[in-house]
Design a protein around this nucleic acid. Structure first.
Length: 890
RNA sequence: GCGGGGGUACCAGAGCCUGGUCAAAUGGGUAGGACUUAAGAUCCUAUAGCUUAGUGCUUUCGAGAGUUCGAAUCUCUCCCCCCGCACCA
């Protein structure tokens, strides 16, 4: 019999499906556990990253289910988005058709993996019944003022022909197609995520205690909170006041110039009619035309210009020259900065270039800095000088004090700045949720009333790859105003697809609700998601949006959840030949082929065994093969075993039996621990150890013990290789599903300390000692193994047969066994620690051996008598300074 | 620059939190053996160095120092690598 993975896997996939084994429903009596994987974009083909993601998720789901939790483990499709639309353009079909076809294919592939989803809860975001609720929430947020349309410089991807949110621009390139992003000024819809900046930030530390550190840091950086002061410098010869944000009020006395962003509207005003106007305008034009990303690129040389005006630093009463500079960004703070060249590297470079004077206001303890001799800004801590009444303060300690002082004087206000920008959700594409807004000449932008939702995507659309296809629909755009019934036009922008994925896990809780996005109580029962699993690439984008949307919909009263994902795992990438698997590199491996050749169990187990979930996984066919062999080995083990129909009583146990039981039960403990810690690879390696032991044991086993070992093995294997485990379970005479069986607990009575302790060496020795006897012969009296303690805590071990020790020693096998036994002795004695602490007297040593005697007899299957080493027949033993007691095994 | 994570035997990768049972799991590779007509599969053994009849000894977990009876594990310093963010005032 060989391991026929296809037959086994098909069989159990069918049974699981037929009997709806993994269907769940709310059950107030049971503790719930929600395992969620980032749902895939239905490209039509599963890739290895998916397989990895879902293998991890499924093993957690199965583990928790067996532990008695009511496990919600759903799957769906993030079905709206560009690829479908591009495919439609390419094939001149409809995205809807293409997407549905893809979803079908993917579902089939997912089912082949044997994932324990509740398929009755599937959702697809392209379903109007789903995106209706995007629109519903949009209109509610609109009413609340959390949505707004406004013109803004936006990131425009010329290839996708749509705008992108800030988060979707990666070093100047489109996150999806990698095309260079351009900046355009357009009127766009925004979700006011910035209103939630503070909560999004503070909850990271307060509530996301089980998130990976690096994701939390990335989010914190992205939100980018800084506390500081909005300084107010009156502009000389003007009634205008220049506002500038700074976190470093301690350097206020060192300000020798200020810099405005070239786009700052004040600039034009200030230079109007002066001799500087022409130069300034030219410079502004040059910089603004320059790509935003080019401008802010690394090591970009600082450039700027004096604009001929001054502002008064109220702290020093000095007139400070105003510059404009390319390194100042309009979109952060007030688009203007104070410049302290002595204590800020950028200002330093700028000042050096334009020969602006500098003044030191912070000195390192003990010596004075000379601004003329500085080669770089001094940014460390120090003592304030030239700073009026704050002279002598530590600069860090002075910051709050100066802030307060400025506020009192009315020269500034303490404020907080965030880097986070509002979430731009408009997309000029077809395959997304239509934004439910109607423009009426009289009433303005009017949200579509709930009764008219969903606003469905038009079907009379041409896909030609130019502009927004929705514009080509005759029936869509023209409509009536819901308020005044007058002539009106629909918004043709659709929503960013990240909106779709910002609440799908709530929908899983109540996927068929037609009256509401979801039932409040269902959401309350299942949420928050206990374990969320997905790629690190969503560390900011999706995870930040999802957190925001959760808070926003909570405030709409739709549910009461603050944070959607309790615990997060970001699995590593699957790589091959040192690079991420990708079509363009041609280093992809199709999961389908692997499943065909080796089976789903192997594919899944390989994913789990080869690397820690968070780490990169290097694809390696040899490794796949190794896992396959392991499964096969287990298969053979079970196949060769004759199940015990009777309820087994574990009695009359020999040491080997006890050892196997101890091993089995310690494995239960370890595997459970490792799964909890997500060290799935280690969990599997522990199983491998057990299998090796069972394999050895199987040659001469006590059936009840074997049954116990194999049963536990099947249970422990179930999260990783569910089909095979299910097969084993059946083989072992069980009538139910191992997938629904109770997760085992290690039984204390089998965890005999003496077996536990010396486990590793014992497993060899136990068999080795028996084999020594077998090899040497039946006549017990001719066999002699001696172990004699030497000086201090070392031990002599000798093995020989009869009187002819030389004959015996020439036998290589026996020498090896002897060696192993010898290795085991210190462990066996259980007294290594004591032996190390004190040099024991001979009597004590003897006692140690005495205590161990019984155990050793069991282990070796030999009877043991004590004798003195000098009584040994071995001349070497006699001579080797062994006047001390020893043990002879006969 | 700021932040996060690392450096373990031929390779991958556990062990570090909770110090001793660690020459250090597991898998791969390599070598030898059993089985086989053969191949494959399977099984066994070895795999830092030296040495023994047996034990043992020396050197090892990025480098150095420290704490300790005892350090891969704890502390400090240094070196190196990877990954995020980055002219954010």
């Amino acid at each position: 019999m060989t391991y026929n993975h296809k037959k086994i896997e098909q069989k159990f996939q069918k049974v699981w499906a037929d009997k709806k084994v993994f269907k769940v429903s709310e059950d107030a009596k049971k503790k719930k556990y929600y395992v969620l994987e980032m749902f895939p974009y239905p490209s039509g083909k599963l890739h290895m990253g998916h397989v990895r993601n879902y293998s991890i998720g499924d093993s957690v789901a199965r583990f928790k289910r067996m532990q008695g939790f009511n496990v919600l483990y759903p799957m769906g499709y993030d079905a709206l988005g560009m690829p479908a639309e591009n495919a439609a353009i390419k094939n001149k079909t409809n995205p809807d058709k293409w997407t549905k076809q893809s979803m079908k294919q993917m579902t089939e592939q997912l089912k082949q993996l044997g994932l324990s989803y509740d398929w009755d809860r599937t959702v697809a975001t392209c379903d109007p019944a789903y995106y209706k609720w995007n629109q519903y929430v949009f209109t509610k947020l609109f009413d609340k003022g959390l949505v707004e349309k406004r013109p803004a410089p936006v990131n425009w991807c010329p290839k996708c022909k749509t705008v992108l949110a800030n988060e979707q621009v990666e070093s100047g390139k489109c996150w999806r197609c990698k095309a260079e992003v351009e900046i355009k000024n357009l009127a766009q819809w925004f979700f006011k995520i910035t209103n939630y900046a503070e909560e999004l930030l503070s909850d990271i530390d307060d509530k996301l205690t089980e998130w990976p550190e690096r994701v939390k840091t990335m989010q914190k950086n992205w939100i980018g909170k800084s506390k500081g002061v909005n300084l107010k410098f009156p502009i000389v010869d003007s009634d205008k006041v220049l506002e500038m944000f700074t976190t470093r009020v301690d350097t206020l006395w060192g300000v020798t110039f200020v810099v405005l962003a070239p786009e700052n509207p004040l600039v034009e005003e200030l230079v109007k009619g002066t001799k500087y106007e022409k130069d300034v305008k030219e410079f502004v034009k040059k910089v603004v035309l320059q790509d935003k990303f080019e401008r802010t690129a690394e090591n970009k040389e600082k450039e700027g210009l004096f604009i001929g005006r001054y502002a008064k630093n109220p702290a020093t009463n000095e007139d400070i020259p105003i510059y404009i500079g390319n390194f100042v960004l309009m979109e952060y703070g007030t688009g203007a900065i104070i410049a302290v060249p002595t204590h800020d590297q950028r200002d330093f470079e700028f000042a050096k270039k334009y020969k602006i004077p500098m003044r030191v206001v912070i000195s390192p303890e003990g010596h004075e800095l000379n601004p003329d001799k500085m080669i770089r800004a001094y940014m460390d801590e120090g003592v304030l000088c030239n700073s009026g009444e704050f002279n002598g303060w530590n600069n860090k300690e002075a910051i709050p004090a100066i802030g307060e002082w400025l506020e009192k004087k009315g020269w500034g206000e303490r404020t907080t700045q965030y880097k986070l920008r509002d979430w731009l959700i408009s997309r000029q594409r077809y395959w997304g949720t239509p934004i439910p807004i109607i423009y009426c000449e009289k009433c303005g932008a009017v949200p579509v009333p709930e009764k008219d939702l969903p606003v469905k995507l038009p079907t009379d659309v041409k896909f030609e790859g130019k502009g927004n296809p929705i514009l080509s629909s005759k029936t869509f755009v023209n409509t009536k105003c819901p308020k005044c019934k007058g002539k009106a036009e629909r918004e043709t922008d659709t929503m960013d697809t990240f909106v779709d994925s910002s609440w799908y896990w709530f929908r899983y809780c109540d996927p068929n609700n037609i009256k509401k996005p979801y039932d409040k109580s269902s959401v309350k029962y299942w949420n928050p998601v206990d374990q969320y699993i997905g790629g690190i690439e969503h560390a900011i984008l999706h995870l930040l949006y999802a957190r925001f949307y959760t808070k926003a919909t909570r405030d709409l009263g739709l549910h009461t959840i603050d944070e959607p994902f309790k615990r997060l795992l970001c699995q590593g990438m699957v790589i091959k030949d040192g690079a991420k698997m990708s079509k363009s590199l041609g280093n992809t491996v199709d999961p389908k082929e692997i499943i065909n050749k080796y089976g789903a169990d192997t594919a899944r187990m390989f994913m789990l065994f080869t690397a820690l979930p968070e780490k990169e996984l290097e694809w390696n066919e040899q490794g796949v093969d190794a896992v396959y062999r392991f499964l096969k080995r287990m298969y053979m083990l079970v196949e060769d075993y004759k199940p015990q129909a009777t309820s087994h009583k574990l009695q009359a146990l020999k040491s080997r039996d006890k050892y196997i039981l101890a091993k089995t039960h310690s494995t239960i403990g370890k595997v459970t621990g490792f799964i909890k810690k997500f060290q799935l690879n280690v969990a599997i390696s522990t199983l491998m150890e057990l299998v090796t032991e069972l394999n050895k044991y199987s040659k001469d086993s006590k059936p009840e013990v074997m049954q116990e070992g194999l049963e536990k093995l099947a249970l422990l294997l179930s999260p990783f290789a569910p089909h095979l485990a299910e097969y084993f379970w059946e083989k072992l005479g069980k009538k139910d599903f191992v997938s629904l069986a109770k997760w085992p607990e290690p039984a204390k009575k089998y965890l005999d300390e003496s077996f536990e302790r010396g486990e590793t060496l014992a497993r060899k020795t136990v068999t080795d000692m028996r084999q020594v006897r077998e090899l040497i012969g039946e006549e017990k009296n001719k066999t002699e193994i001696f172990i004699a303690p030497e000086w201090k805590h070392e031990v002599y071990v000798g093995v020989r047969a009869g009187k002819q020790i030389k004959d015996f020693m020439q036998d290589e096998k026996l020498r090896k066994y002897g060696k192993d036994i010898a290795k085991y002795v210190p462990t066996l004695m259980k007294r290594k620690e004591q032996l190390k602490e004190t040099i024991m007297s001979q009597k004590e040593e003897l006692k140690v051996f005495e205590e161990s005697k019984q155990w050793m007899e069991e282990v070796s299957g030999c009877s043991i008598t004590f004798s003195k080493a000098e009584d040994s027949n071995d001349p070497k033993a006699k001579s080797a300074d062994v006047e001390k007691p020893g043990i002879l095994f006969y």
